[in-house]
């Protein structure tokens, strides 16, 4: 496995100054259980990178290490370097709050704030700054709800609770809430696994549109989804990165036998 990882390190330098993330020797634990083992990988700017693998392979843990959310779980910790725009986000002088404002996240289960209205949900990350005027906030709400392809459906319900939307709408509301903070990167952690096929298609389409302005990392257990939306794919198994390459290579001509068995549906 070490050999393969070395090979990736060479490969990741291919991205040159287009590398948004360079991950080096990343290990993560839950208590004593090691969830990630020496991950070395890069994420290219303005590209969709998919992370695939069977349940429990560490793919969610991996993306949660990219915005320092992993450490918020009791007993969880990680080691290694996650270089984001040339700066290690695990340096002691880095404020995780500021990191999370630049690296947004959309979760598996739609999680709007039920005590807030649709409007308040969108600006939840902004009112913290406390300097936005009402008219500015109105603009922000419309802009990002449009970007999240939700505006037409909710423009008359802006002052209802966010929890009263359908789950597909809730997920797009969460995307709008994430976008409104104006991050560079959006991490999607199985964003469509709780949604119906139509909502899934809407969110995949949305992701394609976001690619030109954002760097996207998506965790998915759905291989067709990875093939549809991503340019690069990493395959994780039992906490290790087995293979990382262009998506079409992973799905048509993988270098590793395990990857081939997984993408052809022989296990997982």
């Amino acid at each position: 496995m070490q050999e393969i990882n070395k090979e990736f390190r060479v490969r990741s330098s291919e991205f040159g100054d287009k590398a948004k993330f360079i991950i080096e020797g990343l290990n993560a634990w839950f208590g004593r259980n090691q969830a990630l083992k020496n991950i070395n990988m890069s994420v290219k700017q303005n590209e969709v990178t998919a992370i695939i693998g069977p349940s429990g392979c560490g793919k969610s843990t991996f993306v949660r290490c990219l915005n320092r959310l992993h450490e918020e779980i009791i007993g969880a910790r990680c080691e290694g370097r996650v270089i984001f725009d040339g700066k290690d986000i695990y340096d002691p002088d880095v404020d995780p709050v500021l990191i999370r404002r630049r690296i947004g996240m959309v979760f598996q289960k739609p999680n709007p704030f039920p005590a807030m209205t649709v409007y308040e949900n969108v600006v939840a990350g902004l009112i913290l700054e406390g300097r936005k005027k009402k008219s500015e906030l109105d603009e922000v709400v419309e802009k990002f709800l449009r970007l999240a392809a939700l505006w037409d459906e909710v423009k008359d319900k802006l002052h209802q609770s966010g929890a009263r939307l359908s789950s597909g709408q809730q997920q797009r509301l969460c995307i709008a809430r994430t976008l409104a903070v104006e991050p560079d990167v959006i991490l999607f952690d199985e964003p469509t696994s709780a949604l119906d096929p139509i909502s899934t298609a809407k969110i995949e389409e949305l992701m394609q549109g976001l690619k030109k302005d954002y760097t996207i990392v998506i965790v998915t257990h759905n291989m067709q989804q990875a093939a549809r939306v991503s340019g690069y794919t990493g395959f994780f198994l039992l906490g290790e990165l087995i293979e990382f390459d262009r998506t079409n290579k992973i799905f048509t001509n993988p270098a590793n036998r395990l990857t081939e068995e997984y993408v052809t549906g022989r296990f997982g």
Binding site: L69, E72, I73, V97, G104, K109, P112, C174, A180
Partner: peptide, 14 residues
């Protein structure tokens, strides 16, 4: 639920 707190942290709340 943890997902509420995580959502809050993920948009840069302290």
């Amino acid at each position: 639920p943890a997902h509420q707190k995580e959502a809050a942290l993920s948009i840069g709340m302290t």
